[in-house]
Design a protein around this nucleic acid. Structure first.
Lengths: 148, 148
DNA sequence: AATAGCATTTAGGTAAACCTAAGAAACGAT
DNA sequence: ATCGTTTCTTAGGTTTACCTAAATGCTATT
């Protein structure tokens, strides 16, 4: 099985590949804030596991398997980010937390987050009344519907 | 600083202490699903760090510092659990995920989760309309307000 | 085509959290 | 009070993800 950190590498490779079609050790090192030596080792491992195409001293690319995995991870992360933003978490925090969360969330939990995001997005009003109320609650600490 | 796993030990000790006033190695071993030897080591560490009162071959108790930490962790977890349950995540899943989440969530994120829980709880209706709608959306995949 | 300067890998470590096996201490039943 | 069982600790290993320092390969410039 794929350890939590390995997934970050996969996603980083995915992101970098979208532009040039491949990723380099240095880029990954910077993006993941890890020394090049460490990247080298992890790529070796991911290669053995069939997630990336990688020959020493060359580029990295995702294999079919790696691509599938990366895309599913990316989708998870996007749900979490959207979800947190809908909840009023600042974007940068949402992004950091999404990184951590995507590794640990149970599928069922993820399903509900996805539902929630879709629910909000599919609302008839651009900004549903209750969401307005929630935002106000966040600001004032009071529920606008509640008297006294 | 306190590693993520150490926090689980603290919380387990807290839980066990609530009944008898202390915790034993075996109990922790079972609760955390870890061998007694491992518990022994971790208690040594927590003791060095001042979170627990612990002499070899005896009970463990939380120190003042440990108690404060444990309570704040417990509060975090409770927020996450309530939150996930409000979202319709089954209780057992919510509890598992809460364990994982409490270690990683940014304070800001936690703040918004707390807000959300309070918002729902402070709603004038026991079950606000929008929450009804959300539940229905989860079942049917359709927003009840939306025609067509 | 030689070499200077990067990029990358190798080798050898570290820290955290776990493990097993074996020994020591405490406990409880007779 | 002693013996057997259970609980706990010690000692020595493992794994994972990281590190540094040193070596090696690549490339681009001259």
């Amino acid at each position: 099985m794929l350890g939590g950190r390995a997934e970050d590498y996969l996603e980083a490779i995915y992101t970098l590949s979208r532009e040039k079609g491949f990723a380099k050790v240095m880029e990954l090192s910077e993006m993941l804030d890890v020394k090049p030596a460490t990247v080298s080792e992890m790529l070796e491992k991911l290669s053995r596991m069939g997630y990336v195409d990688y020959k020493k001293r060359s580029h990295v690319k995702l294999t079919e398997k790696g691509m599938r995995k990366a895309m599913s991870l990316r989708e998870k992360r996007n749900i979490v980010i959207k979800f947190l933003k809908a909840l009023g978490v600042p974007e940068d925090v949402a992004e950091r937390d999404a990184c951590a969360l995507e590794h640990v969330l149970h599928p069922e939990t993820l399903r509900q987050l996805r539902n929630f995001v879709r629910f909000v997005e599919s609302s008839p009003a651009i900004n549903p009344r209750w969401l307005e109320h929630f935002r106000e609650f966040c600001r004032t600490g009071k529920h606008p519907c509640k008297q006294r």
